[in-house]
Nucleic acid binder design. Structure first.
Lengths: 222, 222
DNA sequence: AGATGATTCAAACAACTGTTTGACAAGTCA
DNA sequence: TGACTTGTCAAACAGTTGTTTGAATCATCT
């Protein structure tokens, strides 16, 4: 069992309350975290009995794990790493697509929106689920981005420069999502990131990072 | 009352258990978060009675706020924003000092180490204390960095380019701290960031960001 | 129809939480 | 000394939590 295989896939009869619980739990876990989320609140929102969670998922913790798998599958299905850009496209173009897809995924509203929140929480306060997430989702994306960066820098993917630059790029993306509560307080006049905003933001990060990588080894740089 | 004034400063008689609680609470809050931290655990670690928290701080929540103020004061006293670099130094040098100080502050061990953890948690899952933190600590540092970036870019601090670049720089710093659990899983062979590591990392972020800002508007950039 | 198994439900359970209580000790000032 | 404040302590309180229980309902198949 891993994050790439959506769990058992039960018969249509039981699927109703099961997914209702998954959706409700996604909302609640994302907004208040695992510990502050109560089974009662989840069940109330799902319109099912309190005992349903334990009946269908065993306990609260495995429900949380299932929600993580469920949201991961949805998010990555809706926004694949390179969007609609060909893997044969120039590295610069793939970089822009990668970043835009990332921002869309983490900033999307609705069902896939939990995913970003859940992952953020998982990073600062890991549960047992983080190992699975890193193995099945983050590591592959990390390797993909390192390939792109390696092409741009003209160095092998295992190179230390490539690794550092990759992290500098990802860091910018993660930051906007993790620190949203801070950013909205720092810039109250700034509107929240909508679809148009993510495209502009992806453009800035791409240009910033490309300029950095192209001139990182300039002799002029201190 | 704000984050810059360390609370009442009681007489030496009562100060003992009070600071014992603060230190113990700092450890516990930082490692498991506000909700998962129990007053019993904190008091046990501090070697005081359970009722001591309510007697000295009123309730758990104001204890948390006091811990935040306490750790903020310690962290910023130990690592001032520009370290020992003069405010009259060149912008590039101030940028490097700012980033190095930031990394030292958030990655320091011991007493000031809680601060970074607490702030990280506060960003992903804000309590009522975040407003105070942003107002007293983050906003001034943000303005300081925007001044430096503005100088480098040759634009006013309120400029949109300056704002975006500032965030791109801070994002890289925050990322390494927020996502440490992920990074240690992605690169198990990589040693944890010690004093030597933070200097090398500050150097990379400085060079990366300087190269980016100097060539952000190059016509060659896509 | 009748039996079987799956699912739902209200109610209760046991454990843990932050907080309060009232007694007790220690120091302070008249 | 004696009243008074301050601090500490064990014990209990009231509320919330995840989980379990056993009966009731539903669907399915012989």
């Amino acid at each position: 069992m891993n994050l790439n295989t959506v769990s058992p896939a039960p018969e249509p009869a039981q699927v109703a309350t099961r997914t209702q619980i998954l959706e409700a739990a996604g909302e609640v876990f994302a907004s208040v975290g695992f510990r502050d989320a109560t089974v009662r609140e989840i069940c109330a929102r799902a319109g099912v009995n309190i005992a349903a969670v334990n009946y269908h998922f065993g306990d609260k913790e495995t429900l949380y794990l299932e929600v993580l798998r469920y949201s991961a599958a949805q998010a990555h299905a809706q926004y694949p790493p390179l969007l609609n850009v060909s893997p044969a496209a120039p590295a610069e173009e793939r970089l822009r697509a990668f970043l835009h897809s990332w921002l869309l995924r983490t900033f999307s509203r609705g069902a896939t929106a939990w995913h970003g929140q859940l992952i953020s929480r998982e990073m600062v306060d890991p549960t047992g689920a983080l190992d699975e997430i890193v193995r099945d989702k983050i590591l592959p994306m990390s390797q993909q981005l390192r390939g792109i960066v390696g092409e741009i820098l003209g160095r092998p993917p295992g190179d230390e420069q490539v690794r550092l630059c990759t992290l500098s790029i990802v860091g910018q993306c993660v930051f906007y999502h993790h620190c949203r509560p801070v950013l909205t307080r720092l810039f109250p006049q700034q509107p929240p990131l909508d679809t148009l905003g993510t495209e502009r933001l992806a453009d800035h990060i791409t240009r910033f990072s490309l300029a950095a990588m192209r001139h990182l080894t300039d002799p002029a740089t201190t």
